[in-house]
Nucleic acid binder design. Structure first.
Lengths: 349, 349
DNA sequence: TATATGTATCGAAACGTTTCGATAATTTAT
DNA sequence: ATAAATTATCGAAACGTTTCGATACATATA
């Protein structure tokens, strides 16, 4: 009998084997549901494990298994800290799905400008992860560092080379948004964006253009208001909208590349006494929380963030399983998962 | 010579030992800067390690060291997903400091209502962490589960029993805020809050009361507007402010328990045509990003979130080092670190 | 001079698992 | 009846480190 007072040592597979009178390897097989084990012994092992409160030590499993059970989740530090919980919600989705696969998620941030020699995340060197999720636009140098290290990778809300990715169906979302504006009777619609090198934002512009063309209308270049240098945030929206109001004739509606920009536009409009939606209809993209709470509330394209994270994790998990098998043509046929969106109509349109 | 095409196997301590013609144990000593090693061999080992790009495998170290190098960061899921990046910024601080100690941070969420039998985080069972950071108010059942497991713990922005904690200096912050309102000539100041069982929010009310007393004024009970049931968020602020405006006489200023509440008040005021700060001065607490961007911008008490995370991680690290040593009187003298705040005066006051 | 102390090096045990054969006992196919 | 395949069990090697003695020599202390 174990002493009562002393906190008895944590039990190991050895203890369970002794208690159940079987070999260590048999316990291992039972715990992992592998190989052949008779009903009799299986039950004895399970009972002993329960009795001794046995839980396999992670650290010990990793060594022979040559895997860590960790998934890295990498985010640019400025994306993580930004005010709207966009990537946060995506992370939540990955974490949820990670539970299903008994994986741990290790969140790490990288700087906007990535220098491989300086700030390569430790887990790459130490091989402390089995796979990597990269959310949002990051420095291509980072992605190639990861790819070179031979770590299975899935991008989220970003695309680069042929790496597998889970992205928003931006094109479709943008079309819905613009078609909604047409249906409300608007004829001259402006597009307002920033950082148009970002594949997602570029796709939104494309969707805008397709929708306008489909309506049989021309796109007048001055209506496309973009800032290639700035970030697609509130400030930029606030500033850029000056150019919108200076347009001649002024568009009766504007489709913004994301909600942050749209909220900036809304505030600039309020400042100038331009009524929304009477004088100007505004539509955003993302459906951040403030879109609902803002006065006026913002019509926008809802993105299922948790779902994106979930899908990405599931996808990565599949890839990790396949990895050793078909190493050669692994890079071929890499796939992009497109997550659908939904139009949420509110007071701004 | 290694073959060129095949990605040669990752080098181990054994390879380094062979390359430098020393024992494996010597390499280990060099890599960890322990024990006695002659200059000569030390250099040979370092050179060999560099040549072979040797990085110790985390998984292998953990086994004999009986430690994982992981720190858990636990957050209630609704706190994590909420719109203002308060805890996110705290996390960022912990991650930054974790780098300095070569620790990994494992972010996990728990539900608001915690049931130990149902959703105990896996890392507790698997002993996959060396210490735990808990941010924000969580179910006491969770904390006691952790404590029972004997895992070093530091709370952030929350207090419970005698557990060590890093908290905001709420009392001081609240005093500054209220004294600022007095200095602006306000005599009748209201307090608006929710979830007043939260130690932080309770301390803010206390600071309010101290400041009012210090000014030689009485506190009229109807001016203390709190909702014990609701969460301290935008919606609650929006709703509660109705009671504020119904006050007779109406206070000329209100100090809100946090920015989210204050922003709700601001919008309700705007809706009713009450001018801020002319008819009503509003002060919040936290300095969330929107406090700056809101129209009107919000006077508030700034909290150094990253710094709190950093301090907590450093503190936890210390505790982890001490842990085995003075196990007996470890719980005594447990300490609370109080992080100072700063008053940020903007347009709302 | 004998003895303790400090420096240097190494072999081997230990950490707690998984998994690869080896060995047998069954069952199934020929 | 014999060979082959399936089921069951176990011992031992392996995973890549850290760390505990053991050994040896050099230097300081009594």
């Amino acid at each position: 009998m174990a002493t009562v007072s002393a906190e008895s040592k944590r039990s190991t597979i050895k203890d369970v084997a002794a208690e159940a009178s079987v070999a260590i390897s048999t316990v291992s097989l039972v715990m992992n549901g592998k190989g052949y084990v008779s009903m009799d012994k299986r039950e004895r092992v399970l009972k002993a494990a329960r009795l001794l409160k046995y839980v396999p030590r992670q650290a010990a499993r990793k060594l022979p298994m040559q895997s860590t059970g960790n998934i890295g989740f990498v985010l640019r530090v400025d994306h993580f800290a930004r005010s709207e919980p966009f990537y946060t919600r995506i992370f939540l989705g990955t974490e949820f799905e990670a539970h299903n696969h008994k994986l741990y998620v290790l969140l790490t941030t990288i700087p906007k400008k990535f220098d491989p020699t300086l700030h390569t995340p430790r887990f790459l060197d130490e091989r402390n992860i089995d796979g990597l999720l990269v959310a949002g636009k990051v420095d291509p140098a980072f992605v190639s560092t990861v790819a070179r290290a031979g770590i299975p990778l899935v991008l989220i809300d970003f695309q680069l080379d042929d790496h597998p990715a889970v992205v928003i169906d931006n094109l479709q979302g943008a079309r819905m948004a613009v078609e909604h504006l047409f249906s409300r009777g608007h004829e001259l619609i402006s597009f307002l964006g920033a950082d148009m090198l970002h594949p997602s934002l570029k796709a939104r512009l494309e969707g805008f253009q397709i929708a306008v063309s489909a309506a049989g209308l021309e796109i007048s270049p001055p209506c496309i208001i973009v800032s290639d240098s700035g970030e697609p945030d509130y400030e930029t929206g606030f500033d850029l909208s000056q150019r919108l109001f200076a347009c001649e004739p002024m568009p009766s509606a504007v489709f913004c590349a994301n909600d942050a920009l749209a909220l900036g536009v809304l505030d600039q409009a309020a400042k100038r006494g331009i009524r929304v939606p009477e004088d100007l209809a505004v539509v955003g993209f993302d459906d951040v929380p403030r879109a609902e709470h803002n006065r006026p509330s913002l019509t926008t394209v809802r993105v299922y963030k948790e779902q994106m994270g979930e899908l990405a994790m599931r996808y990565l998990h599949e890839r990790m399983a396949d990895y050793p098998a078909n190493y050669i043509n692994f890079e071929r046929g890499s796939h992009t998962v497109r997550v659908p969106t939904e139009l949420v109509i509110r007071a701004s349109s």
